[in-house]
């Protein structure tokens, strides 16, 4: 196959898909507590969740493609892709707003989950495996100290 999905992209997408699937449950619970749950909430969540996962996969594929190009081509690819993906998500949200079988709030919330998933994962990994590279300020301080010692 010519356009194979990079293992990193596949792994990250799987992780985000898991997060999105888990995040749908609290949304249903909140709507149940508010006594406003109906099938539209479930369908809206599923639509929003599927869109979020698909969008994340497209981000990964876009980066995979862009990293194999020259700088200028990569810039154009990313801008074009970002516009297209925003349009796609806008159309999905319009669909959720217009059709009565979808709840717009339930469709909008899962779209924001990948950001949370990525941030939390980055923090957890930083805690689990502290990077041997120290921040620039630390390096500068150490260099200064070494210089002071030499003096």
């Amino acid at each position: 196959m010519k356009n194979r999905i990079d293992p990193t992209v596949r792994r990250e997408t799987g992780h985000v898909a898991l997060w999105v699937a888990v995040s749908i449950l609290p949304v249903q619970a909140v709507f149940l507590l508010l006594r406003q749950w109906d099938y539209a909430v479930l369908l809206g969540s599923l639509l929003g969740g599927a869109t979020a996962i698909f969008n994340f996969l497209l981000v990964g594929l876009m980066i995979q493609k862009a990293l194999a190009q020259t700088e200028k081509q990569a810039k154009n690819t990313v801008r074009l892709s970002q516009g297209g993906r925003l349009l796609l998500q806008g159309m999905i949200l319009v669909l959720a707003a217009v059709l009565p079988c979808f709840n717009i709030w339930a469709a909008a919330i899962p779209l924001l989950v990948p950001r949370v998933a990525v941030s939390v994962r980055a923090k957890l990994e930083a805690k689990r495996n502290p990077s041997p590279d120290r921040p620039a300020i630390g390096w500068e301080d150490e260099e200064d100290e070494e210089e002071d010692d030499e003096d």
Binding site: I63, A66, T70, E71, K72, A74, K75, N76, R79, Q82
Partner: peptide, 11 residues
């Protein structure tokens, strides 16, 4: 614009 610049630097 921001993503474009970031990916260009990554390249």
């Amino acid at each position: 614009i921001g993503e474009g610049n970031a990916v260009a630097k990554a390249c």
